[in-house]
Structures are given as structure tokens and as C-alpha cells.
Design a protein around this nucleic acid. Structure first.
Lengths: 113, 113
DNA sequence: CGATTAGATCGACAGATGTCAATGCACATT
DNA sequence: AATGTGCATTGACATCTGTCGATCTAATCG
């Protein structure tokens, strides 16, 4: 079994709610990069598309048409979401499957509270 | 009494939770610009500084030193936060006072849920 | 009025970001 | 092995963003 990987961007390991304490520079940088992943309409739509699909996983091939962007562009955005820890990537055969990481959205949400 | 002003950026008038439905392009653009306001470490620190101050309002003059940025830069960031509806601006005499708009943080947070 | 002060705006610049065509790579199928 | 397919990477480009010095504006004070 793989070692649990703690991302540098993990808000769980980062910050108390924004409204409670003054963030230090490191905390602020980590949080800012997380929010930056959400600061693009295409990425928000990709995220919500996966969430609303009903399925646990969504194939990368099914993200092209609804996003209205080229394949390299979608791949680029998905990488940003994966790097932010908001979604997980799983390659099986020729296809790549993505699934949400609900705990990360929860963590970000709690930072806002 | 003033008419209730619905900002174009108001998530309340915008979006159901990201995880529930696929966002249309307009909703995604509005939300993305809101998150973009949070996607900068200086702005997050300014926000949390005001929140953690204990006071209802904070003078702009007190934001310079803790932010470690120049006066034009801080002014620039505060404008972005105000435009995003996260902060309100009130000029009285020579000074400008800022206060949080808690409902906006709540609204953004609910979008993440 | 003139001088002073707090904050906004302007202008310029470097660096980041979104985009796509072209290409590369890993896997599957024949 | 050769071919085909799905996705990532590269390279190039235009645009956006953060930054600060210089300047402008509005309010205050002599």
C-alpha cells in the first residue's frame, strides 16, 4: 500500500478559519494556491461536471465536449485540479479516470467559515 | 430605504452548490471571479487581518505595515476585495475604513458544499 | 488661500496564466 | 513489429496580474 501523501497544499494541515486568526505568509500562500485552482470558469465547470455526473469516476474523454476546449487545454486544467488535490487521477489502460476528493472541498469550505 | 442591490457577483443570486449541478458558463464565470479574489496571499492576509482585529472596522492606514506592501499595492488589493463584495469600504474624512461582509464569505462557503 | 495628508489612479514592467497546434509517450490491437 | 488511440508535454503567443514610483484627488488644518 502506498504511503499516504500529504500535499503541501493540504488545508487540513494548514489553516484555521480565515476569519479567526491572521494567516501567516506560508498559510496564506497555500490557501491562495488552493483558491486559485477554483478561480477559473472552465475548472469550476469540469469539477461540477464530475460531481454532477452521478458516477464515482468520469473518463477524461467525456470532459472534452462539455468543456468546449481543446484536449491539451482540458488536460492542463485537470492537472491543476489534481495538483490542488481537488480531484484524483487514475489511468487504466488507455483511459484516464477522474474522481472528486470531497474532503478537500470540505477542507476549503471550512477555511471559509 | 435603499433598494436591495444584487451584485452580479452575488453567489446567492447565482449558484447552487458546485457539487450538485453542472454550472453553466455564466455561473462559472461569476464564481471564478469570486474565488479569484481569494486566490492571492496578500488579499487573504488582509481579509484575515480585518477579521481577526476584533474591531468592526479597520482603517486602511493600519493595513500597510502588516501586509508588507506599498500603499498603491494595498489599495489595489482592497479594491479587488471590495469589487468581489467580500469587504465594504467607507470613507470618513481623510481615512478609509473597511469591514467584512460576512454573508459573502458564507455564500461562497455554501457554494463549496 | 496654501500646505499637508490619506488614499486612489496612472504608467510601466516582469512574471503568471489560458489557449491551441504540433509532437511525444504509453498502451492496445492487429 | 506496425499501427492506432488517448492523454500529456512542448512551444509559442496574447492576455491578465502583482508590483511600485510618480502623480492625482479629496479632505483637513493653519
Amino acid at each position: 500500500m502506498a504511503v499516504r501523501k500529504i500535499s503541501l497544499l493540504d488545508p487540513i494541515a494548514c489553516c484555521s478559519p480565515v476569519r479567526a486568526d491572521v494567516l501567516d505568509e506560508e498559510q496564506a500562500a497555500l490557501l491562495a494556491s488552493s483558491f486559485a485552482a477554483l478561480a477559473d470558469p472552465i475548472r469550476l465547470r469540469l469539477l461540477s461536471f464530475i460531481a454532477a455526473s452521478g458516477a464515482d469516476e468520469v473518463c477524461a474523454c467525456d470532459l472534452l465536449e462539455p468543456s468546449g476546449r481543446s484536449q491539451p487545454t482540458v488536460s492542463h486544467h485537470m492537472k491543476i485540479l489534481v495538483d490542488a488535490g481537488l480531484i484524483e487521477r487514475d489511468k487504466r489502460g488507455l483511459w484516464v479516470w477522474y474522481r472528486l476528493v470531497p474532503s478537500r472541498l470540505d477542507a476549503l469550505r471550512s477555511v471559509l467559515g
